[in-house]
Amino acid sequence: MSENTPHHRDTDDAHADDAPPTDAASDEVKADAARAGDEVSDGEVSDDEDDPFPPGTVDHASLMGRGSAVVGRAFALVFLGVPRVRHPRPIHPRGFPLTGSVHWMPRNTRSGIRWIDDPAAGESQPLAGRLSRSIGLPAPLPDVIGLALRVQTPEGPADIELAATGSGVPLRFTLLLRSRPSPGVYGTLVPYESDQGRVMVRARSLGPRLPARMSELHRTLRRTAWWVELSHATPAGPWHPFALVDLRAAGSPDVMRADAGRRLIPGARMPAWFEALRQPSYDAVQRGDR
């Protein structure tokens, strides 16, 4: 990693929303932990206690999955019609291609996702990226800004799709309007599933402050790198930094089509209900491009 790599400093740790829970664990949580063979002391709380997507609700998940499949097919019909007006992309039509690398940092908290946990500190992988405006409003009008990253893993290319959100609860589950890409944070909005539970990924801009207009953004990122810190967290837990990303203007056509459902980072899974909700529309739009 270059000596110009910015030092990590998580300003969000000062916010109460990002602090780990400190209340005593409830009897119900203790009983659940005991059944799983774990012991939870009075001073500990499971990360999943306040999980907005609590595990173990099989019947609810089944009902949600069936409902999501119906809604997903409806979304597919809508997204097939939108490109007639906004070809070729119904959402995120205005994009800015990026190139760079991801550099793993020393870390002491595992996520359960191999791509996050397994690389050694100092290891790097190349990546491509795309910065986009979801609604497609012209800058400097505020929009939901998206950041897609395509990483080259030993198992093949994998996509991470992030959008402008907050860091704390509940704002990490909320899309936010912004006029410029940096400063700000980007989140996965919906947690991945892993062998250790549900995992969210956040990208936090470290600098520099970036302009809103694409032409100015291109000039800035040809001269200097945009540094972003990647972190993971449980849905209600604190953020744990695991990597730094440097991004520059790619100087190539805007052709990247991210699909985090089909190109998952190694060790991660999409919730079945969310896959049923989103994948039909993704597949329909991408078939329409061929």
Rank of each mutant, 00 (worst) to 15 (best):
I145E: 02
P97M: 04
G65C: 12
R66W: 15
D42P: 06
F75S: 04
L141T: 05
R89D: 00
G95L: 04
P90H: 00
S62D: 11
A61E: 15
G112F: 03
I113M: 09
I135R: 07
D47Q: 09
L80D: 12
P93Y: 04
L98V: 06
A74D: 09
S111M: 01
S134M: 14
T109L: 04
G112H: 06
V102Q: 03
H92L: 11
I113E: 01
D50Y: 15
L63N: 15
I113Y: 00
V78A: 14
D143P: 03
R73K: 12
G100I: 03
R110K: 07
S124Y: 05
I113P: 02
H103C: 11
L77V: 10
S101C: 07
L149A: 03
D50L: 13
W104M: 11
S134P: 00
N108W: 12
L127F: 03
S132T: 00
A139N: 03
V58L: 13
A74Q: 10
P90F: 03
G95V: 11
H103Y: 08
P138Y: 00
P88G: 07
L98F: 11
S62W: 07
T57N: 15
V102S: 02
L80F: 01
V71F: 14
D42N: 14
G67P: 10
V71K: 10
P126M: 02
P119N: 07
H87G: 14
V102Y: 03
P119S: 07
R130E: 02
R94F: 02
A148K: 00
P88S: 07
S101V: 13
P93I: 02
G95D: 08
M64K: 11
R89V: 00
D48E: 15
A120H: 13
N108G: 12
P140E: 11
V85L: 15
V102T: 09
L63T: 15
A69E: 14
A76E: 10
E44C: 06
L80R: 14
F96G: 08
E44R: 10
I116M: 08
P126H: 05
I116Q: 07
R130M: 07
L77G: 13
R107H: 13
P97H: 07
V82Q: 01
W104C: 05
P140M: 12
P97S: 08
F53V: 10
N108A: 15
E49M: 15
G65I: 12
V78C: 06
G72E: 01
G146Q: 10
R84M: 13
L137V: 03
S111Q: 04
P83D: 05
L141K: 05
L137F: 08
S41D: 14
F96A: 06
P88K: 01
P119R: 02
P126I: 01
G122E: 05
P140R: 14
P83G: 07
P138K: 00
P83L: 08
R110A: 11
I91M: 05
G100M: 00
A69K: 10
L127G: 02
G81S: 12
P126T: 06
P119G: 04
G56D: 13
F75Y: 13
G129C: 03
V58H: 13
I113R: 01
R107W: 09
G56I: 10
R84K: 11
G95P: 04
P54L: 08
H87M: 10
E123P: 05
W115V: 03
P97T: 00
R84H: 13
G122V: 02
S132M: 03
G95N: 11
R107T: 10
D143Y: 02
M105H: 14
R94D: 09
G100P: 08
